[in-house]
């Protein structure tokens, strides 16, 4: 089985350590016997969404959000088709905002694929975050100048620590079919081995036909996750 992963806007949407997500996801997939091809694609380059099974976009500065959004617009129809046929798209930090209706902090319309919109915060929000996600919470760091409203399907159903999608603190992130967006910046997958395993399982199930998932333990990653959770817990 082979999967082709795109790290889209790798050289401009890389606020802090986002490349780690691709590194760890591909290691986990390779350990399952999957052949992984990673392609780094960026501004003004040709990109055919049909060639990929997993596309990742990381967080960026507000200036760069404007530049990337302008470039991403040409793909609006392709992205809709990609998502409709079940393609996986992970967008961390402010990257996921581009797929909604409106981005307040840069006063720009989003691609309008989803109905959510952002609201600019008066002060940048930075905090460690613990999000509820089934058996294993998700840990990470938030660094955002906006919050999101009108989310139909949140990704993380509870916020144990840090800021939720907006003032109500009830949930975090966005999940629509195989589109996953979260304000958590940086190496979300690298720091959450259980979440990464979940993505691996999903990908095997969806693309793998008969490729069976085998449980693998990643002692170092799991220890790192557990002890970090302990350290940041209030």
């Amino acid at each position: 089985m082979k999967l082709t992963i795109a790290h889209l806007y790798y050289d401009i949407a890389n606020l802090y350590g986002e490349a780690g997500n691709i590194t760890v996801l591909s290691h986990y997939l390779q350990d399952q016997g999957v052949e992984v091809e990673i392609k780094k694609v960026s501004l003004k380059e040709e990109f055919s969404w049909n060639d990929y099974q997993f596309v990742y976009i990381g967080a960026m500065t507000e200036n760069n959000l404007r530049i990337v959004l302008e470039d991403l617009r040409r793909y609006t129809k392709d992205i809709q088709e990609y998502l409709a046929k079940g393609g996986y798209l992970l967008a961390t930090g402010n990257a996921f905002e581009m797929f909604g209706n409106y981005i307040d902090q840069i006063s720009e319309k989003g691609l309008g694929i989803f109905s959510y919109q952002t609201k600019k915060l008066e002060k940048r929000l930075m905090s460690e975050v613990i999000l509820e996600n089934g058996e294993h919470d998700v840990v990470g760091f938030q660094n955002q100048i906006s919050v999101v409203t009108n989310v139909e399907h949140p990704w993380f159903v509870g916020v144990k620590q840090g800021m939720g999608a907006n003032d109500e603190h009830a949930y975090e992130g966005v999940c629509e079919n195989h589109f996953y967006g979260s304000y958590v910046v940086g190496p979300l997958l690298a720091r959450n081995p259980y979440l990464t395993k979940w993505f691996v399982k999903e990908l095997l199930q969806f693309y793998g036909e008969n490729h069976e998932y085998k449980e693998i333990s990643y002692a170092l990653d799991e220890q790192a996750y557990e002890s970090y959770k302990k350290i940041i817990k209030n």
């Binding site: 802090y16 350590g17 986002e18 490349a19 780690g20 590194t23 930075m126 905090s127 460690e128 760091f141 660094n143 910046v185 940086g186 190496p187 690298a190 720091r191 970090y228 350290i231 940041i232």
Partner: peptide, 10 residues
């Protein structure tokens, strides 16, 4: 006091 570790991946 913030303890972000994202930078390790850079």
């Amino acid at each position: 006091e913030l303890k972000d570790l994202s930078w390790l991946w850079d």
